[in-house]
Computed example of a mutant assay.
Amino acid sequence: MSSGKKTRVILLKNKTVPIDKYELEFRSKAFEPVFIPLIRHTHVTQDFKSVLNSIPNYLDTIDYIIITSQRSVESLNEAIIPSLTNEQKVKLFSKTVYTVGPATADFIRRSGFINIKGGEDAGNGSILADIIINDLATNVDNPPPNELLFLVGEIRRDIIPKKLYSKGIKVREVVTYKTEDLDDSLPRLLQAMTPHNEAEMPLNWIVVFSPQGTKEITQYLGGKGHPLNSKLRVASIGPTTKKYLDNNNIISNVISPKPDARSLLTAIESYERHI
């Protein structure tokens, strides 16, 4: 980046509160992060509470919880944990939690959980499932669990349950949040891409985290004749998102090796050094 002006990075995601690691990382290196929310999250508590109420002492019967989304953590923090008794909270926080990516692991840790596995070592659900299978197979001091509790969104992939079921490991999926696409994502993106004045540096990066909520945006970016400047570059988080972009005629200039802010920033900086 030879100019003293900031390179704008449009992040197609909801901004995490109170702290968003992507904002912190990019601002630390003189990038200008801009968030474009694509979906709306709504907490779902009835499934979790019905499990607690229908099975006496359910928290005594499980030792392992799988949480792969920060949205599930938010639902726990805001809608479920406050309704638990102190005894239930102590039991919940003592469970081993398996998760994907360092950002979600950090979020879970700040929520009060102590024993967290996967995280930085698990870049996707398939790797996390392998870690769980290996852990349970080598944990000779404890009997195999009756089931693992998997806190999920209403829309989710079934990679983890399928892989665990193939090894005879039972998983109970409990929905903790649901999502819906926002219908004004493309207009907000176009507004964010419009320079405030003629001297402003043109947009450089759009970061796509997930296919969800991006239909209109990808149709626009992958179509012919859109008015984006030639300096536009696209970064994707993970191979699944890259494949989705490929199928929509969008080239990913950068693929973040891990689903976290530092890996994405490092990949973008490396790309810019070599152009």
Results as ranks from 00 to 15, higher is better:
Leu182Val: 03
Ser111His: 07
Leu228Trp: 10
Ser210Cys: 11
Leu182Ile: 11
Leu228Pro: 01
Asn229Arg: 09
Leu182Gly: 10
Glu200Ser: 12
Gly213Trp: 02
Thr194Ile: 01
Asp181Ala: 15
Ala235Val: 02
Val234Lys: 06
Pro227Lys: 12
Asn142Phe: 09
Leu245Gln: 10
Val171Gln: 06
Ile159His: 09
Pro144His: 10
Thr99Ala: 03
Asn204Cys: 14
Glu216Ala: 15
Glu120Tyr: 11
Lys231Ser: 15
Ser126Val: 01
Asp183Val: 08
Glu198Leu: 13
Ile127Ala: 08
Arg188Gly: 13
Leu186Thr: 11
Ala129His: 00
Pro239Lys: 15
Ile206Asn: 05
Pro102Gly: 10
Ile116Ser: 02
Ser126Ala: 14
Ser230Tyr: 01
Ile116Tyr: 02
Arg172Asp: 00
Ile206Asp: 06
Lys162Cys: 07
Tyr98Leu: 03
Ala192Ile: 04
Lys231Arg: 14
Asn146Met: 06
Lys170Asn: 15
Val175Ala: 00
Lys243Tyr: 10
Pro187Thr: 13
Ile169Glu: 00
Asp141Gly: 15
Arg233Ala: 10
Ile159Phe: 10
Met193Thr: 13
Leu164Asp: 04
Val97Glu: 08
Ile206Ala: 09
Phe107His: 12
His226Tyr: 07
Leu128Phe: 06
Ala105Cys: 07
Leu189Lys: 06
Arg233Cys: 13
Gly125Ile: 02
Arg110Leu: 05
Val207Gln: 07
Ile108Phe: 02
Ile217Thr: 13
Asp135Ile: 01
Ala103Phe: 03
Glu147Val: 10
Leu164Phe: 05
Asn139Tyr: 04
Leu245Pro: 11
Pro195Tyr: 02
Thr194Tyr: 04
Lys242Ala: 13
Leu221Ile: 15
Ile237Thr: 07
Gly125Trp: 05
Ala192Tyr: 04
Thr179Gly: 11
Ala235Glu: 02
Leu245Val: 12
Glu216Thr: 14
Ile217Tyr: 08
Val234Gly: 07
Leu149Glu: 08
Val174Ala: 04
Lys231Val: 07
Ser185Lys: 03
Thr240Gln: 09
Val207Thr: 13
Ile132His: 03
Val97Trp: 07
Leu128Tyr: 06
Ile131Phe: 09
Gln191Pro: 00
Thr179Phe: 02
Gly225Leu: 11
Phe150Ser: 03
Gly223Cys: 09
Thr240Trp: 02
Phe150Met: 08
Ile237Met: 13
Leu203Ser: 14
Pro102Lys: 13
Pro102Thr: 12
Asp121His: 14
Lys178Arg: 09
Thr241Pro: 11
Leu148Gly: 05
Val175Glu: 02
Lys163Leu: 13
Ile169Asp: 01
Ala192Asn: 05
Pro145Ile: 06
